[in-house]
């Protein structure tokens, strides 16, 4: 028995012990990927750092994000009090950025999770069953695809009003069709593999085959899609906030900060540039982390 086998023996029982529904050996691979791959490490660090600063913003932020200080209007000086300067009302930009991360990240992740859940379900069933169900679901998806996402989002926000959940669903709605189409395509190719037939012949039901045999084999491109779209959803939320259709005009979000700073870009560039940089770094981090996830879950990748 090789060392690798013994390690696996320890990690995986016959059932494959699970942590949060993920097989422990996959989790192990993820840890290994992050430890060994520099890009994965950077991505993971960014995601964790931004995630933590968003979650603990009330404790970490040096100032109340809404507190105005008229003595400090548009101050760029990186003082210990305002490391990233202040905006046109003298509000601390760092604090606003940290509070903004809460909304931006939550809306971004929430929107894509919503879009992915619905879209992947549609894609799995359409691709697996084919026939009229496929036609019905995919034509419905085509209709969604025919509208620009911004238009849909504006309509939804206009109908249901502003607010965290509404913005999240409005943004996520636009991603259903992309996830559905990608999942369906993957299912179509996996459906041709004999292991789905084999699963049928040992007596698994259709739903079991879809979720145990088909879905895990479609997941790699979906993870990549998920991370790319999370980045895009953060931008989408920023766009809506920029247009004044975001969560609430007064709530600090990255998009809103960017939008508010736009008017002063010639006098105080940092008000809009810094949230822009934050968005960019987050998007980069999520993408790198997504690549690591994909590598870790692809058991066919050679052992490192």
């Amino acid at each position: 028995m090789s060392v690798a086998d013994r390690v696996r023996e320890r990690l995986a029982t016959e059932e494959g012990s699970r942590v949060l529904g993920i097989r422990s050996d996959l989790l192990d691979r993820l840890v290994k990927t992050i430890r060994l791959d520099l890009r994965a490490k950077i991505g993971f660090t960014i995601v964790v750092l931004f995630g933590l600063s968003a979650v603990f913003a009330p404790m970490l932020a040096p100032h109340d994000p809404m507190a105005q200080a008229f003595g400090m209007l548009q101050s760029p000086n990186p003082s210990s009090a305002n490391p990233l300067g202040t905006d046109s009302f003298g509000r601390d930009l760092l604090s606003r950025l940290m509070y903004g991360a809460r909304i931006s990240l939550a809306v971004g992740l929430g929107a894509v999770t919503f879009g992915a859940l619905v879209g992947i379900l549609i894609g799995l069933f359409a691709g697996y069953y084919g026939g009229w169900l496929d036609d019905l679901l995919m034509r419905a998806v085509d209709v969604m695809w025919a509208f620009p996402w911004l238009l849909i989002a504006i309509i939804l926000v206009a109908i249901f009003g502003q607010g965290f959940w509404n913005v999240m669903f409005a943004v996520g709605f636009a991603y259903i069709d992309d996830f559905a189409r990608l999942a369906r395509g993957e299912v179509l190719s996996v459906r041709e593999e004999e292991y789905t037939l084999a699963a049928e012949s040992i007596g698994l039901s259709d739903t079991e085959i879809i979720f145990e045999e088909v879905f895990p084999n479609t997941v790699a491109p979906l993870i990549v899609q998920f991370t790319v779209f999370t980045a895009r959803a953060i931008l989408a939320e920023s766009t809506l906030s920029f247009l004044g259709l975001g969560v609430k005009p007064t709530t600090p979000t990255w998009g809103a900060l960017l939008g508010q700073g736009r008017g002063f870009i010639t006098q105080a560039w940092w008000i809009s540039i810094i949230p822009g940089i934050a968005i960019m770094i987050t998007v980069l981090g999520i993408n790198l982390f997504g690549d690591a996830l994909r590598d870790a879950f692809d058991v066919k990748e050679t052992e490192t």
Binding site: A12, E194, Y195, S201, E213, P216, N217, V299
Partner: peptide, 21 residues
């Protein structure tokens, strides 16, 4: 019936789910 009738497939790689031990 599946307990009484089983199949062996042509392509031994394609007939095994690559993501399962």
């Amino acid at each position: 019936l599946r307990k009484d009738v089983q199949m062996i497939f042509q392509d031994p790689l394609s007939s095994l789910n690559p993501r399962k031990a």
